[in-house]
Design a protein around this nucleic acid. Sequence first.
DNA 1: AATATTTAAGACAAGTATGTCTTAAATATA
DNA 2: TATATTTAAGACATACTTGTCTTAAATATT
Lengths: 150, 150
Amino acid sequence: MLLSKSCVYGLRASLFLASNQNSEYVSIKELSKQLDISFHFLTKILQQLTAVDLLKSLKGPNGGVRLSKPGDEITLLDVVVAIDGDDLFQECVLGLPGCGREKPCPLHNIWAATRGDIREMLETNNLLDMAKKGKEGNLRITAKGDFEWV
Amino acid sequence: MLLSKSCVYGLRASLFLASNQNSEYVSIKELSKQLDISFHFLTKILQQLTAVDLLKSLKGPNGGVRLSKPGDEITLLDVVVAIDGDDLFQECVLGLPGCGREKPCPLHNIWAATRGDIREMLETNNLLDMAKKGKEGNLRITAKGDFEWV
DNA sequence: AATATTTAAGACAAGTATGTCTTAAATATA
DNA sequence: TATATTTAAGACATACTTGTCTTAAATATT
Ligand code: FES
Ligand code: FES
């Protein structure tokens, strides 16, 4: 699996928030209901995004979470790294320590190129573009596809 | 993590076997010692490769495992799919069911391209080429790098 | 000030991947 | 045939990820 489940949940929630033009706070309860993700689990994941200032959170009535900056200033890579870390882009594909330093593994060259492709894909696409794409194409970020873009 | 630990162990063992020109049986004990991988765990992983006829195994004294065909006829993808399955190349990157059918997710297009890159990298490289590369460049398939190509 | 709402934090449970150990089956050699 | 060696198979243990639940802290509203 390329991305952990936590990471996928974080991405889906971030896309939801990015579709919210005016950046109002959205409660995690609402997010978890719309996206069909366990409330408490989603809460913990979003806390990670809040911790690295990708999200802002507000407690109390009418509270919730929102993007900390415009959706076109947050790349998919930002979210992925915040949750899964950058091991995918740093570590040897064969799990050997010190990827690329001194003796690399036989797969190093081909893997370095490919992980560059993955990184570029995540880095050149931002939350707003993806949310727009989802809205315009009536695409889905839930299993049932019953999610309504706002 | 792109590949599971089982998959990585299977790949490293396969590269070792591919470096064995004459395709003699190598005992799993020897493999596990050379590659510094738990013997019993490696045994189970190699059983998976034997089950799909990538390896042949022989019990008893002088027994062990060997590639079932020349190393240039087994791609990295063959080994990866045998152990990790082809979920990586089939499933939605956001974990939604039925990737690409009817309503795709907003990341589908960019992900389809990238997973094609990954697949191509694994498909266009075979065990023999990688083993040759390892031998000629004195590269490593163990953590310490103390492995000696034969 | 009191109350309801919402995120924060952490304990705990369940599930999956990884790793260890024991016994069975097959095979070469004496 | 008897023995040693080696893979096969499966039980069991450990670690990590995922998911649930409870309590605390903050905040808007009355
Ligand atoms: S050393 Fe293995 S991928 Fe870099
Ligand atoms: S539908 Fe999400 S990657 Fe294909």
